[in-house]
Computed example of a mutant assay.
Amino acid sequence: MKRNDPISHIMSRNVVTAHHGDPISKVRALVRQHGVHHIPVVSGDQLVGIITWSDILRVSFGDAFHTDERTVDATLDHTLSLEQIMQKNPVTLAETGTVREAAEILAGGSFHSVPIVSGSKLVGIVTSTDIIKYLLDQF
């Protein structure tokens, strides 16, 4: 295993993002459409937060009761804003970082993705799954 492999070797560059003013229903649709669980929130190309499927489930009781999707979306959009449930100022890694640094961040267990930035500009994302796939390639 290479100790200093650049994070650019495993990060996803085509990141599904939400804009900071988007309704929660749009984020729910992005999760379903793209099959992702971590969505960075941007203002222009600047990272301002991240929202996860777990964040949405935490406030979306309708999902637990098999309520109609449109009802859940309407309820969430009228009671909460994306800014209220997203994680502001997420832990990030510079695009010059290494796979090891990303693994160290994710090993903390508080979350399962790390946005990759150049300054405050979002340029990619790495998930726990990306790290596991990288490890599997090593063996």
Rank of each mutant, 00 (worst) to 15 (best):
T52W: 02
A103H: 13
A103D: 13
I24N: 03
G109A: 09
R32A: 04
V42A: 11
D68R: 08
R28M: 12
H66Q: 07
H37I: 03
I51T: 04
T79N: 08
L93G: 07
I50G: 06
G97D: 08
V42R: 08
Q84W: 06
T98Q: 08
E101D: 11
I50P: 08
T71D: 02
E83A: 10
Q46V: 15
Q87G: 05
H66C: 05
T92H: 09
V36N: 02
V36Y: 05
A64M: 04
G108P: 02
G108F: 01
L80H: 02
A29Q: 14
A18M: 14
Q84T: 06
T71C: 04
N14Q: 11
F65E: 04
S54G: 06
D63G: 01
L93D: 06
S43E: 15
T98W: 08
D77F: 11
F111Y: 10
T96A: 08
S43M: 15
P23M: 13
E101A: 13
V36S: 05
E69G: 05
A94Y: 03
V99E: 09
L57A: 01
S60N: 04
D63A: 03
T71Q: 04
A64G: 01
L57S: 01
I56P: 02
V59L: 00
S12F: 10
P90Y: 02
E104I: 12
R13N: 11
P40Y: 10
S54I: 04
T96S: 11
V42S: 09
A74Q: 15
H34M: 10
L76C: 03
G97W: 06
P23T: 12
A103M: 14
I51G: 00
T92C: 14
T75S: 15
F111M: 07
G108L: 03
E95V: 09
A102E: 06
T52E: 02
V72A: 00
E83L: 07
Q46D: 15
S110E: 07
G109D: 09
T71W: 04
N14W: 06
V91G: 05
V41N: 10
E104P: 07
V48M: 12
I50D: 06
E69K: 03
R58S: 02
A29Y: 11
I105P: 11
Q46Y: 13
S60H: 02
F111C: 07
K26D: 05
T75D: 13
V41T: 11
H20E: 15
V31M: 12
G49F: 05
E83T: 07
L82P: 07
I24K: 00
G35Q: 11
W53S: 01
V41L: 13
R13I: 10
I105M: 11
L80D: 00
S60Y: 02
L82N: 07
Q33F: 14
